[in-house]
Nucleic acid binder design. Structure first.
Length: 421
RNA sequence: GGAGAGGUGGCCGAGCGGUCGAAGGCGCACGCCUGGAAAGCGUGUAUACCCUAACCGGGUAUCGCGGGUUCGAAUCCCGCUCUCUCCGCCA
């Protein structure tokens, strides 16, 4: 979330920026200021009272030592009286703090200056486009080819779990694993440290990366233990740094992780749900960086280039768009989406989202670094899918098909052990 | 899951209910010393928020977390949590 000092010092900038999201921020910011002022006043009163009580209590000890019992008893009564007053003040202060928190949680991140105003994906800006390869001579949707080749079973998933839980099998499963290994190996070459995090996280973690409270309905919940299935590896990986104080020389921290991701996708029934286009459990390799604020936008571009190189290496037609204000995630300041073209469906499928959150996440994460002067600053966090598997699989099947089956891209062959399906 | 032991500052380690944000040591920083270094000596060395022009000074809170007792708690009581040891169960 945004910090109060930021909102104080950059009020107009924040209002203008948030307008690009269609958010009317002025009333919210005013409320933040008012609550913060109230909080300060209350703290002053409360602290003063406590100081008085502390002074008296100390003197009581002294009085007892000197044997002045009566005087001590008098003071005891005085402190007791103050105590009641103090607890009232404290309750009020807590309420104010909670109210302040609540308002802050409603304010999304301020979009970067390059973000266009806009309401939906219609307003996203095309950044660049890969070459469109020659269309395959056969155009079966991936769910049909997959069935023909017996590499993917949607019906079986229905039996085991429910819709949106496909079962990969045979060469399909092998291809899936090849993609994961390939993506992990590539990221390691770029200096990302691999991690295998837990797939369940607690509420603190979900809160720090912004899944709670805004996106609670999107996560599967283990109510008995108050845990959440991760919707993305971003959550556990970023939370490695929750509450941490780093040295400037520790930066950047670069991590890559493969995890299954679980999403309820509530409210999206009927929208592009065929085949692998939208599923409840999917595999994804995620890259995460924590960097010095001065470098975060350079790093964002680097991450975009890296993801682009992955998509290119898979010989898929792609395009990169810069999300407009309205399409931007709550916590992001700037996001690039990667879409690949699925030839048979004649559709663009989102396969990666690369974002700079600036210090919006680290504020909640409370992850800072210390510079040479021992001053502490919030780090900037970034992440990106590199890549999300199902739609990559869909695009591979649709774009690399011929009448005999599927041609496996060159880079994956060392991993699959076969060049055709 | 059961039994026991324990969680104190960057680390180690003291701490009777009162003047303890916390002895001492190590480490670290700066200074002195030295041709230079080591040793030695000296000084300093937690975090957050509030007051303040101030990274000077002052206030409040923090000794795993949360409650309670008390005029006053690192010190007493209760709950939780984590670590270690033993037992049970188990991929």
């Amino acid at each position: 979330m945004l910090s109060v000092p930021y909102l104080r010092e950059h009020r107009e900038e924040a209002i203008a920026g948030l307008k690009k999201r269609g958010v009317e921020a002025a009333p919210l910011i005013d409320k933040v200021m008012a609550l913060d002022d109230e909080r300060k006043t209350q703290q002053q009163a409360h602290d003063g009272l406590l100081a008085e009580m502390n002074r008296l209590s100390k003197s009581i000890g002294q009085l007892y030592k000197e044997g002045k019992r009566e005087e001590a008893e008098e003071k005891k009564a005085a402190v007791s009286a103050l105590k009641e007053k103090a607890s009232g003040l404290e309750a009020a202060r807590k309420d104010t703090l909670l109210a302040l928190q609540e308002v802050l949680e409603q304010i999304p991140n301020v979009p970067h200056e390059t973000v266009a105003a806009g309401q939906s994906e219609e307003d996203n800006v095309l950044v660049r486009e890969g070459e469109l390869a020659a269309a395959p001579n056969q155009k079966k949707p991936h769910w049909d080819i997959a069935k023909d080749l017996d590499i993917l079973d949607f019906e079986l998933g229905n039996v085991l779990t429910g819709s949106g839980f496909p079962v990969f099998r045979g060469k399909g499963a092998r291809l899936q694993r090849a993609l994961i290994s390939y993506f992990l190996d590539q990221a390691q070459e770029q200096g990302y440290e691999e991690v295998m995090p837990p797939l369940l996280v607690n509420a603190d973690s979900a809160y720090a990366t912004g899944q709670l409270p805004d996106k609670e309905g999107q996560m599967y919940t283990i109510t008995e233990d108050q845990l959440y299935l991760i919707p993305t590896a971003e959550v556990p990986i970023t939370n490695i740094y929750r509450g941490r104080l780093l040295e400037e020389s520790d930066l950047p921290r670069k991590h890559v992780g493969y995890t299954p991701c679980f999403r309820r996708e509530a409210g999206s029934y009927g929208k592009d749900v065929r085949g692998l286009n939208r599923v409840h459990q999917f595999d994804k390799v995620e890259i995460v960086q924590l960097v010095h604020p001065e470098h975060s936008y350079q790093v964002l571009e680097d991450m975009v280039s890296y993801v682009e190189s992955l998509v290119q290496s898979l010989e898929l037609p792609y395009r990169i768009v810069r999300l407009c204000g309205g399409d931007l995630g709550f916590t992001s300041a700037l996001t690039y989406d990667f879409e690949v073209y699925a030839a048979a469906q004649d559709k663009w499928l989102e396969v990666s989202s690369v974002s700079n959150f600036e210090d919006f996440q680290s504020q909640r994460l409370n992850c800072r670094f210390r510079d040479d002067n021992k001053k502490k600053h919030l780090v900037h966090t970034l992440n990106g899918s590199a890549l999300a598997l199902p739609r990559i699989m869909a695009a591979l099947l649709e774009n690399h098909q011929d009448s005999h089956g599927i041609v496996v891209p060159e880079v994956l062959r060392p991993y699959t052990g076969f060049d055709r399906i």
